[in-house]
Nucleic acid binder design. Sequence first.
DNA 1: ATGGGCACCTGGCTGC
DNA 2: TGCAGCCAGGTGCCCA
Length: 271
Amino acid sequence: MPELPEVETTRRGLAPLLTARRIVALHVHDARLRWPVDPALPAQLRGQSIRAVERRAKYLLLRLDRGTLILHLGMSGSLRVLPAGTPRLAHDHLDLLLDDGRLLRLNDPRRFGCCLYTEAAPETHPLLRHLAPEPFDPAFTAAALHALTRRRRVTIKQLLMNGRLVTGVGNIYASEALFRAGVRPGRAARSLTRAESTRLWRAIRTVLRLAIRAGGTTLRDYVNPAGSPGYFRQKLYVYERAGQDCRRCGTPIRALVHGARSTYYCPQCQQ
DNA sequence: ATGGGCACCTGGCTGC
DNA sequence: TGCAGCCAGGTGCCCA
């Protein structure tokens, strides 16, 4: 799925199309997502206007008049804005009909995504409450990242992918950030020096920023709201490049598995 | 508190 | 050609 850059690209694509639009109806074609779509949801949303399209970690938040729609794209989800009446394809789950004759359509083959609604402050929602600060929030500093790594026995890659500690970084960008920082993914988090933590902090922000600029990374499913893929895949240094030459030093990239997730690194550039 | 492993799904690819 | 096996961008939950 979509990691932070793909969700942010989606948010930026949706915001101008959805902001100030009124919801005419919600059609649920297939309620089976990570959690079933609440049968009461269409009645709750009808008539509300979309005030803002925000993002928290990898969640999209549609701020409505009375509440917030919380969307997650899971591993394979995507959102498109289409003219009403566009024929449905396999795995189209939801259509949010808008007052301008368009609709917001959620497609998610693997059904790991979700669509939830709350009328409480979204930051208090159980799914959002424990999330770490955003990578571009002033609270996420090199010193804060270094402090997180102290006394932790998990690998630094697993730490990066733990949303309670760092948000927005998934399997692709964890490998890419560690390459840029020159740190091997299998290192115990607590073994990082302050200088390494600082390099990693900078690398996380750089790789996310560059990926957003490229419209995210499309491996298989991901498309932005206009239906276009992201172009960061061509800029990846290590992810899915096992056996290929390191772009920096020429050494073959290695792959290994951490916590059931594929990990890629350059044995020469990363120590 | 921390960490490990499993679970939830479908589809696409590989190799026999 | 068919089919089994494996892998895929996330993350909540249960258990030690």
